[in-house]
Design a protein around this nucleic acid. Structure first.
Ligand SMILES: [Mn+2]
Ligand SMILES: [Mn+2]
Ligand SMILES: [Zn+2]
Ligand SMILES: [Zn+2]
Lengths: 143, 143
DNA sequence: TATCATCTTGAGACGGTTTATCAATTTCAA
DNA sequence: TTGAAATTGATAAACCGTCTCAAGATGATA
């Protein structure tokens, strides 16, 4: 709960810095967003329909994109729909995705990140972001 | 040129095995495809309009997907459009993408691949495929 | 070589996802 | 409290890729 407050403050700061306004919808969407690891706009739309039946899908897209700009979310394209990844109280991470059941496991590996930098340097690049996704079968789906 | 012939033979084999037919369009598209590393259907559509103004976009999509099934191409989603990666005479590889000019550099790094396996094993997964993309600025775009 | 079942093509309709539009509403600094 | 500026919700539009289907091409067979 205190974490929610902290993130609300992050949002507030971002809004202030960009002359944006804190609305009932933004608060509502943030609260719901912080409860999950990965979510699509469509899923949130249905989840929140119970709390506010008039909340529009466009508003959810707009707000999730706002969270991305504020550094609390990251858009990822695992399947056909954009997954908004909650990175607010964890840093960067990559994903293992089960092609059987769709389970997503998050992981971090400094050694891989270091080697990525090495590859980039060798090719004259300076990395801004990267994307690493490992697709395979989880232990359950192999049996 | 002899490489083109070799790939044409790969296509022929695939077609034979699946009761498909070798058409003028498939030959035309393969020849053009082998000339480039990465290409979108739309780009090929415009390139080939000169050689055959009646060649349809749907045919290009269908044919590039066919090349994927035959193991000569791999569909990748760098930006908004699907890039068809020519993997006919090179093995698996990953990519560095310049966010400034769009340049794509291919690379391979066994050590990263090994660490990926390690991560997967640690989480009970068996990897089928993976995707690693490094986004950043190339040396030219930094100046 | 002629036949013809089967596959392929091209044009455009269609579908799913995300963004743009815009009048009405809400926010918040003054 | 006021009002300029931002936001919202409804829905149209854009975008990309696939589907549909009648017309045409292919190639195994005789
Ligand atoms: Mn994640
Ligand atoms: Mn490539
Ligand atoms: Zn699984
Ligand atoms: Zn560049």
């Amino acid at each position: 709960m205190s974490k929610d407050l902290k993130e609300m403050e992050v949002l507030r700061q971002h809004l202030a810095k960009h002359q944006l306004k804190l609305t009932r919808q933004r608060e509502l969407i943030l609260t719901a967003f912080l409860r999950q690891e990965h979510v699509t706009a469509e899923v949130m739309y249905h989840q929140l329909a119970k709390k506010d039946p008039h909340l529009g899908l466009a508003t959810i897209y707009r707000t999730l994109n706002l969270f991305c700009e504020a550094g609390m979310a990251q858009a990822r394209h695992f399947g056909s729909q954009t997954q908004y990844d909650n990175i607010s109280h964890k840093g960067h991470h990559d994903h293992l995705i089960c092609t059987g059941c769709g389970t997503i496991v998050e992981f971090e590996n400094c050694e891989i990140e270091r080697l990525q930098e090495e590859v980039a340097t060798k090719n004259g690049f300076v990395i801004q972001t990267h994307r690493l996704e490992l697709y395979g079968l989880c232990s359950r789906c192999r049996h």
